[in-house]
Amino acid sequence: MSIRRLPSLNALRAFEAAARHGNFSRAAAELHVTHAAVSHQVRALEEEAGLALFHRTGRAVVLTDAGRSLLTVLSQAFDQIAEGWAQAKGEVGGPVTVSVEPSFAARWLVLRLGKFSRAHPDIDLRLIPSSAVTDFERQDVDIGIRYGRGGWSNVTSERLFEATVYPVCAPSLLQAAEAAGKPIRVAEDLRFQTLIHEETTAHWKAWLDAAGVRNARWASRGPLFVEASLALQAAAAGQGVALGNDPLAMADLSEGRLVRLFELETPDDEAYWLVYPERSARKAKVQAFRAWIREEAGLLPAEIAGIKTTTRARAAKPTPSA
C-alpha cells in the first residue's frame, strides 16, 4: 500500500478557511487562533508547494489560480470529512442552512415547516431570509431558494414554480368600490383604484396590456414596495390592488384575506428556483430537504425527472396543501 504524502493538515485547514473567507483575520477567528498563526501556516504551505496560493496587496488577499484549484478540492474533502464524522457519531441529521428569498420564506415555506419536521425530526432547518445571491464558497449555506431567471454560475438550478401574476385585493375593497358606484367588473375599472407596486411597474403594464387596457398612464401611481410580501400585506389591509402569484398569495386567498379579481394571468420571465453547489448535493440532509420541497412544489422526484448537477427541472404549479 502506497504511503500518502500530505502536507500539514493544520496548514490545509488554515489555507481553506482563509481562502473561503478571503481574509486571514476571519479565518483566525473561525479556527480560534491568531492572525499570525494563520499567516504562518499558509506561508509554510506555499513554501512546501513551491508556489504562491494568494496574491497579497495590503490587507487584502486574493487567490491565485493554484489557490483556487486547491480550495475547490479542499472544500469538498473537508465537507466529506465533516459528513463522515457526523455519521460515525450517529448524527445523521443536523441543521440544513437555507438561504431563501424573504417573501417566499414568509408566505410559503414557513407555512409548511411542520411537515418537514414531522418527516425528518432529526434534521433542523436554519433559514436565512435574503434577496442577495449566495456565495456558497464563502457563506455557511447548504442550499438556496431564489427568484429570478436562473442560470447562476457554479450552482445547479432547479425551477420550482412558474411566476404567473393576477390582480388581488381585500374583500372590503371590493365592497367599498361597489358602494361607491365604481364596481370592479372589468380591467378598465382599476383606474379608480390604488394600484400597489412591487419594485417595478413592469408587471402591472404587462397584465393591463394583456387585458386590453392601453395607454394606462394612471397605472404608474400608487405605493411601491421592495418585497412582494409587503405589497400583498398592504392589499390584504384594503390599501389597494396588488399583483399576486400562487406561491405567495395562496394562503391569503384560501383564508379569505384576499380575493382574485380576474381569471387572466400573465407569465413572468422570472421564477422560483432551488439552487445549490455540487458539494451540497452529496449531503444526506440536503438530499432530504431537496426531495421534500420538490414534493411540496408538485414536482417529480429528481431521480425520475432525470435531474443531474447541470440540468434544470421543468416548472410546475404549486400544490394548495399547507
Rank of each mutant, 00 (worst) to 15 (best):
Met1Thr: 12
Arg5Pro: 12
Ser8Cys: 04
Leu9His: 14
Leu9Asp: 13
Arg13Gln: 13
Ala14Tyr: 04
Phe15Val: 03
Arg20Asp: 10
His21Met: 13
His21Ser: 14
Asn23Ser: 11
Arg26Asp: 14
Arg26Ala: 15
Glu30Tyr: 14
Thr34Pro: 07
Ala36Thr: 11
Ala36Gly: 13
Val42Ser: 01
Arg43Phe: 09
Ala49Arg: 15
Ala52Val: 04
Leu53Gly: 09
His55Lys: 15
Arg56Trp: 08
Thr57Ile: 13
Gly58Ile: 00
Leu63Ser: 09
Thr64Ile: 01
Asp65Met: 11
Ser69Ile: 11
Leu71Ala: 14
Val73Ile: 14
Leu74Ile: 03
Ser75Ala: 13
Gln76Asn: 12
Asp79Pro: 08
Trp85Ile: 12
Ala86Gly: 10
Ala88Ile: 04
Lys89Pro: 08
Val92Ile: 13
Gly94Asn: 06
Thr97Trp: 02
Thr97Glu: 06
Pro102Val: 03
Pro102Ile: 00
Ala106Cys: 06
Trp108Glu: 00
Arg112Tyr: 01
Ser117Lys: 15
Ala119Arg: 08
His120Asp: 07
Pro121Glu: 02
Asp124Pro: 09
Arg126Val: 10
Arg126Ala: 11
Leu127Thr: 00
Pro129Gln: 03
Pro129Ala: 00
Ser130Glu: 01
Val133Gln: 11
Thr134Arg: 01
Phe136Gly: 00
Glu137Thr: 14
Glu137Asp: 15
Arg138Asn: 13
Gln139Arg: 10
Val141Lys: 00
Val141Pro: 05
Asp142Ile: 02
Asp142Gln: 04
Ile143Thr: 01
Ile143Met: 05
Arg149Lys: 14
Ser153Pro: 12
Arg159Ile: 09
Phe161Glu: 00
Glu162Met: 14
Glu162Gly: 15
Ala163Met: 10
Tyr166Gly: 10
Pro171Phe: 07
Ala176Phe: 09
Ala177Asp: 09
Glu178Ala: 15
Lys182His: 14
Val186Cys: 13
Val186Phe: 12
Asp189Trp: 01
Leu190His: 02
His197Leu: 02
His203Asn: 13
Trp207Gly: 00
Trp207Arg: 02
Asp209Glu: 11
Ala210Lys: 06
Val213Gln: 05
Arg214Gly: 09
Arg214Ala: 12
Arg217Ala: 13
Gly222Ile: 02
Ala231Leu: 04
Gln233Cys: 05
Ala234Gly: 02
Ala236Val: 01
Ala237Cys: 10
Ala237His: 11
Ala237Asn: 12
Gly238Ile: 01
Leu243Tyr: 07
Leu248Pro: 01
Ala251Lys: 07
Asp252His: 09
Glu255Pro: 09
Glu255Cys: 12
Gly256Gln: 05
Phe262Tyr: 07
Glu263Asn: 13
Asp268Thr: 14
Asp268Ile: 10
Glu270Asp: 12
Ala271Gln: 01
Arg279Gln: 06
Arg279Asn: 07
Arg279Gly: 07
Lys283Cys: 12
Ala288Ile: 07
Arg290Lys: 08
Ala291Val: 05
Arg294Val: 05
Ala297Ile: 03
Pro301Val: 04
Ala302Arg: 02
Ala305Lys: 02
Gly306Tyr: 02
Ile307Tyr: 05
Thr310Ser: 11
Ala316Phe: 05
Ala316Val: 07
Lys317Glu: 14
Pro318Met: 05
